[in-house]
Design a protein around this nucleic acid. Structure first.
Length: 499
RNA sequence: GGCGGCGUAGCUCAGUUGGUCAGAGCACACGGCUCAUAAUCGUGUGGUCGUCGGUUCGAGUCCGACCGCCGCUACCA
């Protein structure tokens, strides 16, 4: 029993949900589901990041106010997460009053501590990037990314004194070796810190779409600074200290490597400046590559999650990203690979196991599922799978957890081949074989439920079990012998039709 | 330029501190089975572990150089 507070990044509302967003979110969801299953008190946060010049500009182009724009896009994210069975407990929007209140309290606190100071920033600014460039960055005098002219901008900004935190960050990394995982990403973060840290501007006077700086309201908080604070806002920072104390620092951030700098360098320093410990873990995953190339928003070679869900179902979608893309390194995404994985693992191994067992139970046992045998050779395989799956989820390695679960499915298929229950006469021996197979299905439904919740619930229902897999508590619930027998087993349409 | 990282069977990838480490799944071939979603089970083909050197009794596993790919390089959700 423990506490598990897991977050996705909050997604920027100038962009529609794509499979990159979905990838991070499905991982966080599966982890949340696993932790609920093992009885941890779990809180799962996602949301949208709604400030900044790009949102303001995107809204203007559509003839909307920034808030209207944010309202629309955040709804699209919620729709996407409904489609993908994302079981978030809270969806935060940075335009909510709670977040304004928390951000302003945070700013005031850090300002009072002396780590925010007024300075001047002058530079060549690309509004599309919302970033400054040096002369050397420019291509023909234009923004290197957008190819559009940059503007010479000079403004008074408040700066966060990040430079004061270099040593404290290094000390923190030293004393918390698993702060950033996997290790390669931790090294990248350390590399950034060791290169030296500069203060960074956290306010803008050039735009109005943001959280006003409390002591100087003509300034608005720079979008990145307020965005990170969402993780604290959502569990009560600035409004409910007791609640905040229960969830922080038990926080686990799931992020992509593109935002490593912000989460592994700026954010812990920001927390320290506010007198708060950094989160427990930051888990950094790689990019999804298509044809060896990064999925890029600007290149727009993206695929709508809804299209893939239409082809493979929610669980087909979720399973693919959890099983086929090891957490950490970049992973290759391909439609062909997705078909292959779907057919091999979901249709052939799991779906077909359910089908064949249900059919034989129907023919040989009148559709009533018998109980497993206490000394089944599958019991050891099930225990092994349970332990390995638990280890995989605990280490945020979903592909390992699922690989272990599928080894058990293969064992069950082999066990059926070895005993050929379809040839056996009714009796205890037959019942033992089928009971064992049903018990494997029950355990697999539990172990796989974080990844494929809908399919797990359907397996649970078809083998006659009451309630839902989510109601069980592991590891006890996955112990061998839980299937009681005497339950109606339903033959149904293929759980995962082959593609 | 500086600092990460990566390059292992056709494909996607595992390979702690050097000594069954040459592996898994998929694909492919052959065989078995027919309960099942042309599914399943068994067996097998397949890699000089990017290249060249070095350390070592012994190196995907350490060191150096090189080739190829990629990320970050200091406010780019």
């Amino acid at each position: 029993m423990g506490r598990f507070y897991v977050t996705t990044p909050i997604y920027y509302v100038n962009d529609a949900p794509h499979i990159g967003h979905a990838y991070s979110t499905v991982i966080a969801d599966a982890l949340a589901r696993w932790h609920r299953l093992v009885g941890d008190e779990t809180h799962f946060l996602t949301g949208t990041d709604e400030h900044g010049l790009k949102v303001q500009r995107a809204a203007e182009e559509r003839g909307l106010t920034p808030k209207e724009m944010a309202d629309q896009t955040s709804e699209r994210f919620k729709d996407a997460w409904r489609l993908l069975d994302i079981s978030y407990d809270d969806f935060i929007r940075t335009t909510e009053p709670r977040h304004y209140a928390a951000t302003q309290q945070w700013l005031q606190k850090v300002y009072d501590n002396g780590d925010i100071e007024l300075g001047t920033y002058e530079g060549l600014y690309c509004v599309s990037c919302e970033a400054y460039y040096t002369e050397g960055d420019l291509v023909n005098g234009n923004c290197p990314i957008h190819g559009r002219p940059v503007e010479l901008v000079k403004e008074d900004n408040y700066f966060f004194k990040l430079s004061r935190y270099q040593q404290r960050l290094l000390d923190w990394y030293e004393s918390h070796p698993d702060f950033v995982l996997p290790e390669g990403k931790r090294n990248e973060a350390l590399g950034i810190i060791r290169q030296g840290l500069q203060d960074f501007s956290i306010s803008r006077t050039s735009i109005s779409w943001g959280v006003p700086i409390p002591w100087d309201p003509k300034h608005v908080t720079y979008v990145w600074y307020d965005a990170l604070i969402n993780y604290a806002t959502a569990v009560g920072y600035g409004s409910d200290p007791e609640r905040f104390a229960t969830w922080w620092p038990a926080a686990h951030h799931i992020i992509g490597k593109d935002i490593l700098r912000f989460h592994c360098v700026y954010w812990p320093a920001m927390l320290m400046a506010a007198g708060i410990d950094p989160p427990q873990h930051v888990y950094v995953h790689g990019y999804l590559l298509i044809g060896g190339e990064k999925m890029s928003k600007t290149k727009l070679n993206q695929i709508a999650p809804a299209d893939l869900v239409a082809d493979f179902g929610v669980d087909g979608f979720r399973y693919h990203f959890l099983r086929d893309t090891p957490f950490g390194p970049d992973g290759e995404f391909s439609y062909e690979g997705m078909v292959a994985r779907y057919n091999a693992d979901l249709a052939n191994n799991l779906g077909n196991l359910l089908s064949r067992v249900a059919t034989v139970v129907d023919k040989k046992c009148g559709g009533v599922g018998p109980a497993p045998s206490a000394d089944s050779p599958l019991a050891a395989a099930a225990a092994t799978a349970s332990h390995a799956a638990a280890a995989g989820w605990a280490a945020v390695q979903p592909h390992e957890a699922l690989d272990a679960t599928w080894r058990l499915i293969r064992e069950a298929n082999a066990h059926l081949e070895a005993h050929e229950p379809w040839k056996m006469e009714p009796g205890p021996a037959l019942e033992a074989v089928l009971g064992d197979a049903l018990e494997v299905l029950r355990i697999v439904a539990l172990l796989a439920s974080p990844a494929v919740p809908a399919a797990a619930a359907e397996i649970w229902r078809r083998i006659g079990l009451p309630g839902r897999p989510e109601d069980q508590r592991l590891p006890a619930g996955a112990a061998w012998g839980g299937y009681p027998g005497g339950l109606p087993v339903e033959k149904g349409a293929p759980l995962f039709p082959r593609k």
